[in-house]
Design a protein around this nucleic acid. Structure first.
Lengths: 123, 123
DNA sequence: ATATCATTTAACTATATGGTTGAATATGAA
DNA sequence: TTCATATTCAACCATATAGTTAAATGATAT
């Protein structure tokens, strides 16, 4: 039986796969910079490519990785593709992290209160 | 000149490298499960390896990746290595994500209030 | 119709990753 | 000392990743 605290159970497997892709997408500094650019406003592919010393094809691939992770959505109008952040995926990763941050710090709170109780019993 | 909103500037380069490693470490489901186990209590390497259908050496490598990302710290006592979460790195990644979550949703708030103003002017 | 612009696709390369097995290291116990 | 335990290290393999260049697709503009 899984415990209530088992985030893996709570989240299910599809979500697990999505986390793989989200974190993998975020692990590349070029892709994070792309997200940074999109955070301010939507951008076309060539706008996103401009600051990088890298082929358009390479950026195209990076965007695809972000898309696969659902971090970016693309709006095709004519020949230009306009990319924007999908914050839902950002928050999925964010939630995962906050869960463990909190879990771990709770552990210390509990530890601390146990120590306190023990200390009180000494007297 | 960088803007105040430029988290990359604010964070510096060392931090950037750490983010690469943190997100990369988190992109693997085995490593996330290892973190999950450690969230409850500290664990030895073999304890961490036990639930996986994988060699100890493989888990040893996974732990090393987590260590390199500063997500895990190791306490060697005799021949057993006790691993625990280092929440500081978790929160570094968490901060990064929250920054962009917030940034993006602010963007919509601003957009919305602009639309509202525009609407009011119509009357 | 043709040239140009925005972007993707395909084929290829080098390197990184995640796993394996077998040997090495180092501590603990008999 | 000898044997077992906990863990790492080294060499290897298959696959994935991040980049390249050149060609293909598809929409605009002339």
């Amino acid at each position: 039986m899984k415990e209530e605290t088992d985030i893996l159970y709570y989240m299910g497997n599809q979500n697990e796969n999505q986390l793989n892709e989200i974190f993998h997408a975020l692990a590349d500094p070029t892709r994070r910079e792309i997200i940074h650019m999109m955070a301010q406003k939507e951008r076309t592919v060539s706008e996103l490519a401009e600051p990088f010393d890298m082929s358009l094809a390479a950026i195209s691939k990076h965007i695809k990785v972000l898309e696969r992770a659902n971090l970016v959505k693309r709006n095709i109008t004519g020949r230009t593709h306009i990319c924007s952040i999908n914050a839902e995926s950002l928050s999925r990763a964010s939630e995962w992290l906050r869960f463990y941050e909190k879990f771990w710090s709770n552990r210390f709170d509990i530890l601390e209160s146990e120590l306190l109780k023990a200390k009180n019993r000494e007297h």
